[in-house]
Design a protein around this nucleic acid. Sequence first.
DNA 1: GCATGATCATGC
DNA 2: GCATGATCATGC
Length: 484
Amino acid sequence: MISFLIPEKDLPYDPKDRKSVAEYTKLLENKTLRDYAYVPGGLDNVKNKGLYGQKIENLFFFIKTNNHAGADFPDIPLELKTAGLLSTSSRDRHKNISGKWKSKEALPMSAISFEDIVNEDFFSSRFLEKNKNILLIFYKFEANKVVYDLEIKVTGVWSFSEIPDYDKKIIMDDWEKIKSLVINGEAHNISRKDTDYLEAMPSATSDSMTSQPFGPKARTRKFSFKAGYMHSVIAKLGSEKTNTISLFKKSDKNINLSDKINDKFAPYIGMDASLIASSIDVSIEDCKQAFSILSKRLVKAIFNVPEKGNIEEYVEEFSKAEVTIKTIRINKDNLPKEHVSFPAFKYEEIVNQSWDTSDFKRHIDKKFLFIFFKESGSSFFLDRAVYWNMSSNHMNEAKKVWDKTRELIQLGTIVKNVKHKRRYTYFPGSKDNLVAHVRPHAKDAKDTYKLPVNDISTKSSEYTKHCFWFNREYVKDYIYNLKK
DNA sequence: GCATGATCATGC
DNA sequence: GCATGATCATGC
């Protein structure tokens, strides 16, 4: 039972009218809660952003905090959520889809009950019941600021019924995917990258466990919208001109992202690289990343991305689902010519990170679009486009490589043999782990990053830049051939 | 031939 | 100027 702190008839908005609530909420934009809040004796100094929503309910909407399961505005129904914003930088890959502001992180919504979801269907699910209409209040994130002084920048209502059909389809598929993992007794192996927009986000405390009907205890999780998805929600609420391109047409109803990508690539599959180049009217560069450049130009041609635009930024679905594109050349036996590199890591940073906050995990905890060119005679043809994400058990394999690498850097035991012509390292090699290994990634051997601890055998305080690489055998078996 | 170290062009 | 996304090259 909702009870108002002032009589309902005196409320400055109509709690039974969603539009009225949304318009009233707009008064908060470019203001702080302190501009509206009145408490006899003054406000407290709450800094915990988890309490911000309650304070807004109490002081701005004059609603007592409700502890029951119902919505904050039960008649319409509307669920109030507050979330942080960061300003986008010019180097931001989400700049184009986000406009001025981007979401600080994924938006947690309601808890997932593994016991219940297996008996639900999407349209009568607790997820949809609880989250079909969300009143969003976004503030500029500033750590350690008293909540009353946070600057509110964007507000508005997100409604499932009002998003495009192709977005609904992706969210429904995401929900179904989570449900099917639970049905298969795999709730303990769910990963955020199994889905596109709606993810099963683990609770912040890693030891919080709950039961699942057909498997061992699993981490408790919440349905959450990915940060990439929230970027576009924020831009739309803020009426920013984002100039993005959707893979879907308005009439697309029952097609998912993976199938849509395959459809778009289909006309070019089997086509020789030189023929692709001439048919989209570009030339093939003569450099190391020639195939990467060609495949990005092909993607731009297929999806109508401007020549100068960044694909992962312009293609709305790639931005919302946080997709990374990798181009791979494979030989006649489907083995990639090369291992697959990631950005070089900084030795001083990796020792201060945990696996969950590490850059490597952040890079691989995403969706990928692998574009494979296969060798044929003296040329290569476009063979496959694979929309892919890593499984949780392989994630654990990757973690072993990261753990070992971090340990070696911490101990200062990187270099194996100084006297040898070439310097060999103790970093995990491609035979040591199924998924990944560590190798140099630098302009040349003199291109270094500082070490947190001097290397014992070289006495050096810096070392050639290195990065994590996906093993090419792994790419062949688990990405190209989709082995489980 | 493969594992691993070394290096390069592009684009922002 | 440097990070990125790759390929080249050496030596076991």
